[in-house]
Amino acid sequence: QVKNNKNPDTDTYVLPKRSRYYQALLDIDLLQKGQPYDLLPPTFIIFICVFDFFEKGNYVYTFKKCCLENRKLELPDEATTMILNTKGTHGDISKDIKSFYDYVNNHIVTTDFTKQIDDEISYLKLDTKVRREFMLMEARLLDERREGKAEGIAEGEANANIATAKRLLSMGLNVQDIAKATSLSIDQVEALKAE
């Protein structure tokens, strides 16, 4: 994350809600329909920021859900969000992470770890096939999100029509009028009435 962006309409920073959105995207892909929730594996959302979002000087900010009434009580959902602050000044981090921060901030290679990162980045920049595949993957992900959003809207509308039809049935309206009002078929309204 290079900039600490704000939404111009609300004047609020986008990073916290972006983290929540990424968590939702990650979870939705990790669990298939009908699978039990306990199959969700532990997850980590990690932002590498070249600014200190919280302005406390920490190298790392780690978040898990806790109870407001008892801060020692943690919700064991195994979801963790970490904000890595490359401009941090205190906290315990490994030599490799410190060298990574130096690499991000100044593009300085100081360890074998950052040498490996630098070599990989150089390779990826030169490999047009990999760059093209990465761009295609981003485009596919965007298309999938759009399709998922459209499906969600359609499903929401269908559920709203069914709920409306049930209310109208309870009010004693006839099946034909309810079908017209809700865009449901007469058969669908008849099925709801039979329930």
Rank of each mutant, 00 (worst) to 15 (best):
F54K: 07
E147A: 14
S94W: 00
L124K: 15
L75H: 10
D96A: 12
G152F: 03
N106W: 11
E147C: 00
E133A: 04
K72I: 00
L68H: 08
K95S: 14
S122H: 10
R146F: 08
A158F: 15
D96R: 11
I121C: 06
E69L: 05
L75F: 14
K98R: 15
A154V: 11
R132P: 00
M137W: 03
A160E: 02
M82K: 05
D92Q: 14
E155M: 14
G152H: 10
A163D: 09
L142T: 13
Y61L: 00
T81D: 00
F100L: 06
K87V: 15
E138G: 05
V109E: 04
D118N: 10
E147D: 04
N159A: 13
N159K: 11
F100P: 06
C49S: 07
V130M: 15
E157I: 07
K149R: 10
R71I: 01
G57Q: 13
Y101P: 13
E147V: 01
E138W: 13
Y61E: 12
A79H: 15
N70M: 01
M82I: 00
D118C: 04
I93S: 02
T86A: 09
L141N: 13
N159Y: 09
G91H: 06
I93H: 07
Y59P: 11
T114P: 08
I162S: 00
R131M: 07
L75P: 12
I108P: 09
S94C: 01
M135R: 10
K115W: 02
D52N: 07
G152D: 00
I121W: 09
F51I: 08
N106M: 14
Y59A: 04
T114M: 13
D118G: 05
D119C: 01
K65P: 06
T81R: 07
A163V: 00
L68R: 05
E147L: 06
A160P: 02
G57N: 10
D143A: 10
F134R: 02
L68D: 12
G88R: 02
I117W: 03
K64A: 07
N70G: 04
V60L: 12
V50N: 13
V60Q: 09
L73D: 12
L126C: 06
I83V: 08
F53I: 13
D143I: 11
F63S: 15
E151K: 12
F134L: 09
K95Q: 15
D77L: 09
A150T: 05
G152E: 01
G152I: 01
H107F: 10
P76Q: 01
K87A: 11
S99T: 11
L73G: 03
A150W: 08
V109K: 14
A158L: 08
T128I: 04
E69T: 01
E144K: 11
A163L: 03
I162E: 15
A158E: 12
F63I: 08
M135G: 14
A79P: 04
T80L: 15
F113D: 03
C49N: 11
N105W: 05
I97T: 03
I97L: 08
S94H: 05
S122D: 11
N85H: 10
G156C: 02
L142H: 13
D118W: 09
A150M: 05
M137P: 01
G88Q: 10
E74W: 08
E120L: 15
Y61K: 06
E78N: 09
F54N: 06
L68I: 06
N70E: 12
N159E: 07
I83S: 10
Y59F: 15
